[in-house]
Write a protein that binds this DNA or RNA. Structure first.
Length: 257
DNA sequence: ATGACTGAGCATCTCAGA
């Protein structure tokens, strides 16, 4: 089973990149983030042609997540349980694929909107931990993936790429990420590559790609039985070197069975 | 110390991204 995640920074700008990539890499499920469009504007036909169904949680201009799947999936949630009823940000999709629960997230960045913006990020992380706890209490097999907007350790961002008080690395942010690990989730990439930088994002500015000034902020967290099936996890760096790329690259997870 | 790249939208500037 192959599952992938990709923050595409506008699906309408990146539809051809995604189509080419699906044809080559052939994931069973691809979680997308930062669609930057409503569901009606999502270019679904280009993916169904390739054998992928599309489940879209869209929003005008900002955010937006989706799942493309060539295996049967059922959408379980389109909003993160535990957030206020009037929360309209499209950042969460939860699927069932056979016995697996697959969650795709676009976690708030937290650097805009002042203290309220950062508080929203923390509240979102609290609700996410509660959701993961509930699933584990039900003995579910969980793959939690997407753009977490968290660089968990100092090795996960290039020197100078972020300031120490950035919302992606603030201690309160990292503590809430660690809480997911304490619940029993395994960081798939770090389980396979325990040391050294492995980036998934390079800013458009300041020649960040050319200088390899990147971040590791797109993750796969696996519940215990799923972690036992871990066979591979890698970012596809080649995508960042293409014409008009997203600033994030896809990350691919392979599970045995 | 400075500058600065991409995308969307009631758009030739502002907001957000990270």
């Amino acid at each position: 089973m192959r599952i992938a995640t990709w923050n595409v920074n506008s699906i309408r700008q990146r539809a051809e990149h995604v189509r080419d990539w699906l044809g080559r890499v052939q994931p069973d499920v691809l979680l997308l983030q930062e669609l930057k469009c409503e569901e009606a504007a999502f270019p679904a036909a280009g993916f169904t042609e390739l054998g992928y169904s599309a489940a879209v949680v869209g929003q005008k201009a900002y955010n937006g997540v989706a799942a493309l799947a060539r295996v049967p999936v059922e959408v379980v949630h389109r909003k993160l349980p535990g957030l206020p009823e009037d929360d309209a940000q499209a950042r969460y999709i939860e699927l069932r694929a056979g016995a697996l629960t697959i969650i795709g997230i676009y976690l708030p960045n937290g650097n805009s909107g002042g203290e309220a913006g950062y508080a929203y990020k923390l509240a979102w992380m609290e609700a996410l931990a509660a959701r993961v706890q509930a699933l584990l209490d039900d003995d579910a097999d969980v793959v939690l993936t997407g753009d977490f907007n968290v660089a968990p350790e100092d090795v996960d961002y290039a020197k100078g790429a972020l300031s120490a008080d950035d919302a992606l690395v603030r201690p309160e942010t990292r503590a809430r990420y660690r809480r997911l690990l304490w619940l029993g989730m395994t960081d798939a990439l770090r389980a396979l590559v325990p040391e050294g930088p492995v980036y998934t994002f390079w800013d458009y500015q300041s020649a960040a790609w050319q200088r390899n000034s990147g971040l590791r902020i797109d993750h796969f967290l696996l519940s215990p039985r799923v972690a036992e099936r871990l066979a591979g996890c890698r970012p596809d760096k080649d995508e960042r070197g293409k014409m008009q790329p997203s600033d994030h690259v896809p990350v691919v997870l392979d599970l045995a069975g």
